[in-house]
Amino acid sequence: MEKIAYGVAVIVSFIILLIFFSPVTIINPGERGIMVTLGKASPVILGEGVNLKLPLIQKIIKLTIKTETARNSTLAFSSDLQTLKVEYAILFNLPENKLFDLYTKYSGNVLNSFVTPRLEESLKTITAKYTAEDFVRNRGAVKEEVYTLLKEKVSGVVNLNDFNITNIDLSDELEAAIERKQVEQQRAKQKEYELQSALKEKEITIVQAQAEAESVRIKGNALANSPRVIELEVVKKWNGVAPTTVVTGGGGSSIILPLGK
Rank of each mutant, 00 (worst) to 15 (best):
P258N: 14
I204N: 12
L223W: 14
V229N: 14
K3F: 12
I34M: 08
R228L: 13
T245Q: 05
G260A: 13
F14I: 11
N164E: 10
R187H: 03
N239A: 14
I60Y: 10
T245L: 06
N97H: 08
A132Q: 00
A188L: 10
I178T: 13
K219Q: 05
T127A: 13
L84G: 01
V12K: 03
G252Y: 06
A141D: 13
P258L: 11
Q190I: 14
F100Y: 12
K236Q: 11
S79N: 09
A41Q: 11
N97W: 04
N112T: 07
I178D: 02
K181R: 06
I27Q: 12
V44W: 04
A211Q: 05
G108K: 01
N93V: 02
L18G: 13
A242L: 15
V216G: 04
I15D: 10
Q182M: 12
R137H: 01
I11Y: 14
A177C: 08
V183K: 15
I57N: 02
T74P: 13
V44P: 05
F163C: 03
A5G: 07
K62M: 03
K153T: 06
F135P: 00
E144D: 11
L257D: 04
T74I: 10
Y106E: 02
I11H: 08
Q186Y: 06
A5Y: 14
S22C: 07
F21Y: 12
L123W: 00
P55Q: 07
E212K: 15
E87V: 01
A128Y: 07
V247L: 07
T245F: 08
L259N: 08
G47E: 14
K105W: 00
S79I: 06
P55H: 06
K124P: 00
F77D: 06
A177P: 00
F114I: 01
A224V: 07
I204M: 13
L94G: 00
K40G: 05
K143I: 02
Q196I: 08
E87D: 14
K129R: 05
L150A: 02
I90L: 05
F20N: 12
V158C: 02
G249E: 07
R228H: 12
K40S: 10
L123K: 00
E96V: 09
Q182L: 09
S42T: 05
T166P: 11
Y147N: 02
T74W: 06
E133K: 15
Q82P: 00
Q58R: 14
N164R: 07
V234K: 08
T248N: 03
P43K: 08
Q196R: 07
P43F: 06
V146Q: 02
E233T: 06
